[in-house]
Design a protein around this nucleic acid. Structure first.
Length: 200
DNA sequence: TTCCCGATTTACT
DNA sequence: GTAAATCGGGAAA
């Protein structure tokens, strides 16, 4: 399937991008080893007006500068000193919006993922959760600010879900963002097992 | 330079 | 259900 075009990432509405990313295929090519799967869970971070966003209020630093790039690149950073989290930067240059990829359903390179996760057999938790996902795909800071049009990490067309198949709810781990923590910016595929929190 | 804390996961009670 | 692990970024001084 073809890679998503640059225009896809540069849509103005990050919430729309987050929803459309569900059902797309995410791949990484780490030193020639391919792994990938179907995106099942995302979260939107809406730039300067979103207290949960690292670039809230226009904060532009060595880390967050990546989010100000034009849509279509990765934003990877370390959280809790342990976990790498993968985001897709969206919107126009200067507008620091991003979509956190929280979970995928593995389809390619499952053996490699099992090795990286030190697991013996396939279970949803292998890629359910942003830290786990990054580990399974071999994502680290070396993949920060990479173009999604190149051949190290990219996203391909696959499926489009209807609104009725998508669940919108509150984001996770952002209680510090006060009232913005209540924004329904987390999206996942209804009924899918590869989601970072118990399904309903 | 110092101090505080986080877009989490995992192990253990 | 609860807690520990662990380190870089951001803000203050």
């Amino acid at each position: 399937m073809p890679k998503l075009p640059r225009e896809f990432y540069q849509q103005e509405d990050v919430v729309s991008v987050a929803k459309q990313l569900l059902g797309k295929m995410l791949f990484t090519n780490i030193e020639g080893v391919l792994t990938g799967g179907i995106i099942t869970e995302t979260e939107a971070y809406d730039g300067v007006v979103d207290k949960a966003c690292h670039a809230y209020g226009g904060r532009n630093t060595n880390r967050t500068v990546t989010m100000f790039l034009a849509g279509g690149v990765t934003y990877v950073y370390l959280c809790y000193g342990i976990h790498h989290l993968l985001n897709v930067v969206s919107g126009k240059e200067g507008n620091p919006q991003a979509v956190l990829i929280r979970a995928i359903e593995p389809t390619l390179g499952i053996e490699t993922m099992l090795l990286r996760r030190k697991m013996e057999k396939l279970a949803p938790r292998i890629t359910a959760g942003p830290g786990a996902l990054s580990q399974a795909l071999g994502i680290g800071k070396q993949l920060n600010a990479k173009s999604l049009s190149a051949d190290e990490i990219w996203i391909e067309e696959f499926t489009n879900y209807q609104e009725t198949e998508i669940v919108a709810t509150t984001r996770i781990g952002v209680a510090y963002a006060e009232e913005h923590a209540l924004w329904p910016f987390r999206f996942y595929v209804k009924g899918n097992k590869f989601v970072s929190k118990p399904n309903s």
